[in-house]
């Protein structure tokens, strides 16, 4: 075993880590905004809204990320980074929409009725009474969804983007130190996932009192 190889290739690893973090951050933001919007629309009364969101969720959830990625890159001709981001956002937003919609179903009917009865307008009930309760409930599954984005970002290496997994493969090809490279990438993903979990726990404490 030769762990020194990781030190020699540290710049390669750091570049890969940086790109993975950047891609993940943008994709997490995008899929959160899109998924939440869709989940809210799907929870509105009205058949058409719910049906459209359901269709989106089913379509996106049933196609692997990598198939979406190839379609965007090879068929539609997107550049690598946009293709990767669109693939990640469209994929995870479908799951997040579903999580948000189930969050709405956990809020008792009395909550919106009480707020409306107190004279609040429908949109105020939604923003001040329903949404905070939805988010409080869905923090744990949302954390999993965000971690999923980071893990899924590794498929973007397949179209030549030099993110973290790509770089560790590169190290292996150059040095034949597969074990060390694989260990490095494993540990780095683990650290990223833990960082997200910690951040989400912090947010939960800050806004919802634990």
């Amino acid at each position: 075993m030769d762990w020194a190889v990781l030190w020699d290739y540290r710049q390669v690893l750091i570049d890969g880590l940086g790109l993975t973090v950047a891609l993940s951050a943008v994709a997490i933001g995008g899929s959160f905004v899109l998924g939440t919007t869709l989940g809210c629309i799907g929870s509105l009364p009205g058949f058409v809204a719910r049906r459209s969101v359901d269709t989106y969720v089913e379509a996106m959830r049933n196609v692997p990320v990598v198939a979406k990625l190839f379609f965007l890159y090879f068929v539609l001709g997107f550049d690598a980074i946009p293709a990767g981001l669109i693939a990640l956002v469209s994929h995870q937003s479908a799951y997040i929409a579903d999580v948000v919609a189930s969050g709405f179903r956990t809020v008792p009917r009395e909550q919106s009725e009480a707020a409306w009865s107190q004279g609040l307008a429908r949109h105020e009930v939604f923003v001040w009474v329903l949404l905070p309760q939805v988010f409080r409930t869905i923090m744990p599954p949302l954390t999993s969804q965000f971690i999923e984005v980071v893990k899924n970002s590794s498929v973007i290496m397949l179209i030549g983007v030099q993110e973290m997994t790509f770089q560790t493969q590169h190290i292996e090809h150059q040095t034949f130190r597969g074990f060390e490279a694989a260990t490095a990438v494993t540990v780095l993903y683990l650290v990223l996932a833990l960082a997200i979990a910690l951040a989400m726990t912090g947010l939960q404490r800050r806004f919802f009192g634990g």
Partner: peptide, 26 residues
């Protein structure tokens, strides 16, 4: 609507707000 108060069997209060904010919110 605000002139007609309503108390349910349960789930009347907003669980994400303190008692004070529940009372002063509306």
């Amino acid at each position: 609507r605000a002139e007609i108060g309503l108390v349910f069997q349960r789930f009347s209060l907003y669980p994400h707000m303190t008692v004070l904010r529940n009372l002063t919110f509306a």
